[in-house]
């Protein structure tokens, strides 16, 4: 496998705040990656550095084997759909699309216009006058039709309704199957997107805490629910991720795969075992507030 991106001990500080803290990872060719984490975890900062729009404080980035800064052969292979992309204030949708063929070597104009139609975008309208959802759709159209070898979507579906998001997933998978390329989806909305991903990079407060195939993460945790007395003995020696109590009932999320023996042990004790979705797991891993307690006895 060829590495499209190599990031080595990357750190970015703004004054005294460190937004990206000693992060290292590689992105392999032809896969769909998820760059996940809460708002402010450092996702956008990392993407801005990969595309040389921000400079690292320390560390090294190689994209297509080279430093991306002012590197035409690297940059022309990247399409970065930024959540906060600025547009000149007179620009209409059509104006931006007119520029794309000269910016992206693989641009498919026909495909772009078919997507515009599907999203019912008013091409003559000024970008400044678009709703948040329409703005996201414009980004999706450009990102897909650019067919760039490295396509990066930063929060691609802010403001999109379920139907529009569905169109995005369908078209992305369809076009990715026809024209395989490396795609990074950065989002804090993990729920829907997780099954489209092959690999997950999870950031928390500037640090990379998970770098794994997404299916390897699924099933890595489970939740046991039962009375507090029984729970204590069951939980001893286990890695507890999260605990909530409601009266005498305790719900504990354990960060370990559930093996057959543990399952039988729990069943004998009368504990209820439920699976933990990827979304829930990531919420637990990145929730830095003190443990939540629900007390109904008050």
């Amino acid at each position: 496998m060829t590495n499209i991106i190599e990031v080595n001990q990357l750190t970015k500080s703004f004054g005294s705040a460190t937004t990206v803290n000693d992060v290292s990872f590689t992105i392999e060719e032809g896969k769909i990656y998820g760059l996940l984490g809460r708002n402010g975890a450092g996702k956008t900062t990392i993407m801005n550095m990969i595309t040389a729009q921000l400079f690292p404080t320390s560390g090294e980035i190689k994209v297509f084997g080279e430093a991306p800064y002012e590197n035409q052969s690297v940059l022309r292979q990247i399409c970065f759909i930024k959540e906060g992309q600025q547009y000149p204030h007179l620009f209409r949708i059509a104006d931006v699309l007119d520029l794309c063929p000269s910016l992206f070597p693989n641009w498919d104009n026909e495909y772009a216009y078919s997507l515009l139609e599907e999203y019912k975008l008013p091409v003559k309208r000024k970008i400044k006058k678009l709703s948040r959802g329409m703005l996201s759709s414009v980004g999706i159209v450009i990102g897909l039709a650019s067919r760039a070898p490295l396509t990066i979507f930063d929060e691609p579906y802010l403001g999109l309704d379920a139907v529009a998001r569905g169109i995005f997933y369908d078209r992305l998978l369809e076009d990715y199957a026809k024209h395989p390329r490396t795609i990074i989806l950065s989002t804090h909305l993990i729920d829907e997107v997780s099954r489209m991903l092959e690999h997950v990079l999870l950031l928390d407060q500037g640090k990379l805490i998970i770098n794994e195939e997404v299916d390897a993460i699924r099933g890595r945790a489970y939740t046991a629910i039962g009375s507090a007395k029984i729970m204590d003995s069951f939980m001893s020696g286990k890695q507890i991720l999260h605990q909530e109590s409601m009266g005498s009932i305790v719900s504990t999320t354990v960060f370990e795969p559930l093996d057959k023996q543990t399952r039988m042990e729990a069943e004998e004790l009368g504990l209820e075992i439920t699976p933990v979705s990827l979304q829930q797991l990531i919420i637990h891993l990145t929730n830095n507030t003190p443990k939540r307690k629900v007390d109904l006895n008050q």
């Binding site: 997780s194 099954r195 997404v214 699924r218 099933g219 699976p275 990827l278």
Partner: peptide, 8 residues
């Protein structure tokens, strides 16, 4: 598809 088990 259930999100808590490996999809494959």
């Amino acid at each position: 598809i259930d999100d808590s088990r490996p999809i494959y």
